[in-house]
Amino acid sequence: MAPSDSEIFDKVRQALIDALGVEDDEVTAEATLVGDLGAESIDFLDIVFRLEKTFGIDIPRAELFPEDILTNSNFVHNGRVTETGVAELKKRMPFADLSNFEENPLVQEFGNLLTVKDMCRYVRGKVAG
């Protein structure tokens, strides 16, 4: 049986607590992984590993971190993701809320996009198969 949303949230929260050494109450649905929870690039390896183990899923790196899009000159111009690039990101990351990013799509801001809620949505999509 597929886990409920609250089960997914609790497990994602635990993975983030273990990987980032943050407190329970810091891991809210709206918290951003980088800005609010202080995740650094190496922490994503840890987070991905814990989510794979906890939920028995496989997480290809490019699904969560579309570096190929962000470094592709067809999708990035002067440090900003183009409209086509944003459309590509939306296609690749249907679980992520890109509305704030779209207003000022600076590549350097992309890292601070993912929230706990996005991670839960991503996991839900994976466990649903």
């Binding site: 190496i42 390896l45 840890d46 991905v48 590993f49 794979e52 183990k53 790196r61």
Partner: peptide
């Protein structure tokens, strides 16, 4: 080794 990928491992 718990997990190993091209760019990192646990």
């Amino acid at each position: 080794i718990e997990s190993i990928q091209q760019d990192g491992s646990m």
